[in-house]
Amino acid sequence: MRRLQERLLGHRWYTAANASSGSEIWVLGLCYKVSADTGNEALSAQAYEEFLLDFTSRVWITYRKAGFESLGQTKLTSDVGWGCMLRSGQMLLAQALVCHDLGRSWRRDPGQPCSREYLQILQSFGDSESCPFSIHNLLEAGSPFGLAAGSWLGPYALCRTLEALAKADKNQSQKIGGERALPFAVYVVSGEAEGERGGAPVLCVEDVASLCSKWGEPTEEWSPLLLLVPLVLGLDKVNPRYLPSLRATFTFPQSLGIAGGKPGASTYLVGVQDDQAIYLDPHETQQVVPVTPDNLEVDTGSYHCSVARRLPLDSIDPSLAIGFYCRDRGEFDDLCARSSELARQSNGAPMFTVAEKSAPPKAADSSKLDMEESVPKESSSEDDWQML
């Protein structure tokens, strides 16, 4: 039924033939030049194979059943039907861990024994409370934001959940004197009133610098960083003005992709070609596969997808979260420079902006007046989303 729906909605998968219809495929900051020129068949085929190897090496996390540890008092033993945004968030987080521990150039080789570092990443997303980034622990960390087993959540709550999970992990490691499961700080870029007033959120360099300097050990000057940007880019669909900027984020070397995707059915967007987004779909129900770093011969095939699906970028849900990973201060400064340039090229419609310092808070008694004055008496339907 899912694949029938994909056919009806126009969602397709890549083959060497249809991938060559465009000139470039961008996957999490890497470019694959697939050309339709008749003189470059061999080069296009090689680029396609490299793209496919990259895509199939991304960690794919889906619905699970049969071996799924029950979720607290709910007694639920599967996340089928409600856990897709959590699974998308897990995939984005897994990509950050892969970049941190294995490097962006890492590729999976099914013919070779698994590395311990790779298996440790997969184990951390297992479906039990003992696994630090399991759905079980995500639900616990996200309870202040309304997360509950059996209910769906939005990208903003997902970002705050990952932030809370990182803080809890740091506090626990300091308390018991052990290593942190999450080896980087998490910063959420949001606008006024915790992101509820719309408008372009601001990435504050001063706030990030303070977080990363405090997060690291005393001998470290700067902690690695997972930066999350939850956005609402329209009402029923993404405002077309934001599509060029959205597409451009996949070209950033710090790109972790986007948690979002189809309306009401979250996916993990990892790449783009022309006006098509390439994604990993968590809506595949698989059995739980126990993974431990000691079993180097374990079959991890269910954590990797060989089918690269795509959908029109302008058809994705306007509520989404963009992720970036910065290993050090230099990569963060480069991200800020790229983001500032992207905002300058946005024709007055930036997705988010960069500022050195935080803006001073407005007086509480004037906030209502400020909001009333900021809303135009008449607005076009194209700009109505800014009133969210």
Rank of each mutant, 00 (worst) to 15 (best):
M1A: 14
L4R: 11
Q5R: 13
Q5A: 15
H11G: 03
A16W: 08
A17R: 12
N18K: 01
A19S: 15
L28A: 03
L28R: 10
S35I: 06
A36V: 06
D37E: 15
T38R: 12
N40I: 09
L43W: 13
Y48D: 00
F51K: 00
L53K: 12
D54N: 10
D54R: 14
F55C: 00
T56M: 09
R58I: 00
V59N: 03
I61K: 00
F68N: 05
S70T: 13
G72H: 07
Q73C: 13
Q73G: 13
T74E: 07
K75T: 12
C84I: 06
M85A: 06
S88E: 11
L92K: 10
L93W: 10
Q95F: 07
L97V: 05
L97S: 12
V98T: 09
D101N: 14
R104P: 15
R104W: 13
P110R: 08
Q112R: 14
P113I: 01
P113E: 03
R116V: 15
Q120V: 08
S124Q: 08
S124W: 08
E129Y: 14
F133I: 02
H136C: 06
G142P: 07
S143Y: 09
S143W: 10
F145Y: 13
A148F: 10
G150L: 04
W152H: 13
P155E: 04
Y156A: 13
L158P: 10
A168P: 09
N171M: 12
N171K: 11
Q172N: 14
S173K: 03
V186N: 06
Y187C: 11
Y187P: 04
G191L: 06
G199Q: 07
A200C: 08
V202L: 14
V202R: 14
C204N: 09
D207L: 12
D207Y: 13
L211V: 05
L211R: 02
W215I: 04
E220G: 06
S223H: 05
P224E: 04
P224Y: 06
L226D: 02
L226Q: 12
P230R: 04
L231I: 07
K237D: 07
K237N: 07
N239D: 04
P240G: 01
Y242D: 00
L243N: 05
A248P: 04
F252Q: 02
S255V: 02
L256Q: 02
G261A: 03
G264C: 02
L269S: 00
V272W: 01
Q287M: 14
Q287E: 14
P290Q: 05
P290G: 07
V291E: 04
D294T: 09
L296C: 12
L296F: 07
H304K: 01
H304Q: 07
A308Q: 00
P312R: 00
S315G: 08
I322T: 02
C326P: 03
G330D: 08
G330L: 08
D334I: 04
A337H: 05
R338H: 05
S339Y: 02
L342N: 03
L342K: 02
N347K: 11
A355R: 13
S358E: 15
A359C: 11
K362A: 15
S367G: 09
S367T: 07
L369C: 14
D370I: 04
M371F: 11
D384L: 15
W385Y: 15
